[in-house]
């Protein structure tokens, strides 16, 4: 993956020199260990700022919205991992952005690292982290460790079956081998195996530290509504305090709004300051979308999402 960045830079330099795009949305280096920052590069000179490593865990499709596109129809380029590209496709399928205004620089991805899993291995705060291929050298005041990426892979990346962008204009590297999983949703199955009370307690425990900063929602490319239901004042759909019912309502409805649209990119969990795995909600929907409709979001520009269309074959045994 580290050779990708050279290809990404070469592609961007070429795009700017030919005047094909107005800007490139990518990742820049961060100011602290294990951080990156989304950036819009607007000139050839700034291409050097781009980085790509295992900490580019946010979803850049979030920065490609109706309002962010050049009004004159000029193109923008986006550095896209498999999931970012799928979310760009979702934007296009949902008529948010036109295909011809987005230039997709596809990145074959071998997964992102879980910062929390790395931090857990340390007693004190991490002061430095460098990546060399698939290993990290991580340093704190008390210890130094060499960690293999596969040991600290993010959960969603472990269960990713679309590491290569399904739609792209150019690839910044050879496609990587896709994973074939015997059990694609063991986490969902695990929760499903609990009795109802335990399941309820599981989700209550999961969200109990939620501070309602809405980072999960705002990091999600699917959440582009002009006004979110939690921000409506008249009517006010949900209370704004720390009441557990209001918190659960927010998480349940946020997740359901992603039904049949979520690509399990993991940006919500990456963004959460409290380390809440909100994917426990969305993963159930992803599993159902696959089981009931054979659907995975963002794979095809020409297929309508299952909750978008009616088919006589749709499962209907829940309607009485």
């Amino acid at each position: 993956m580290d050779t990708c960045i050279e290809k990404i830079k070469a592609i961007c330099t070429d795009l700017f020199s030919k005047g094909e795009v107005e800007k490139v949305i990518g990742f820049a280096g961060g100011s602290i260990p294990m951080a990156t920052r989304p950036i819009a590069v607007t000139s050839e000179a700034d291409v050097e700022k781009l980085v790509f490593n295992a900490f580019c865990g946010l979803n850049l499709a979030n920065y490609v919205t109706k309002n962010n596109l050049p009004k004159d129809g000029a193109k923008i380029a986006v550095v896209a991992k498999g999931c970012d590209a799928r979310n760009l496709v979702t934007h296009m399928v949902e008529n948010q952005v036109p295909r011809d205004q987005v230039y997709i620089i596809g990145v074959p991805c071998t997964g992102m690292a879980d910062k929390r899993r790395i931090a857990q291995r340390f007693e004190d705060e991490i002061t430095q982290c460098t990546q060399d291929g698939d290993t990290f050298t991580v340093t704190s005041a008390l210890q130094q460790e060499v960690i293999a990426k596969k040991d600290v892979l993010r959960h969603n990346c472990q269960y990713c079956t679309h590491r290569n962008p399904p739609v792209y204009d150019v690839m910044a590297g050879e496609p990587v081998e896709e994973q074939i999983l015997d059990q694609p949703f063991p986490d969902v199955d695990h929760i499903a195996s609990m009795d109802p009370e335990t399941r309820w307690d599981h989700f209550a425990e999961l969200t109990k530290n939620c501070i309602r900063c809405y980072a999960c929602r705002n990091a999600c490319p699917l959440c582009y509504c002009p006004t979110c239901f939690v921000d409506e004042s008249s009517p006010q759909w949900v209370g704004k305090g720390q009441d557990e019912t209001d918190i659960t309502t927010f998480h349940f409805l946020r997740a359901f709004h992603c039904a049949g649209r979520c690509t399990d990119c993991g940006a919500c969990v990456e963004a959460c300051p409290m380390g809440i795995n909100v994917r426990d909600f969305t993963r159930k929907l992803n599993k159902d979308a696959l089981d009931l409709f054979g659907w995975e979001a963002g794979m095809d520009l020409d297929r309508r999402p299952p909750l978008d269309v009616y088919s006589p074959d749709d499962p209907d045994d829940f309607i009485k």
């Binding site: 309602r212 929602r217 209370g239």
Partner: peptide, 25 residues
């Protein structure tokens, strides 16, 4: 502001941010 996703994390974790809202139920 480009990269900002406009979540409230910075203000909620901040020890000096004091803004509040009033709600009736």
């Amino acid at each position: 502001a480009f990269s900002c996703i406009n979540c409230g994390t910075c203000t909620y974790v901040c020890p000096t941010c004091w803004c509040f809202d009033i709600q009736d139920e």
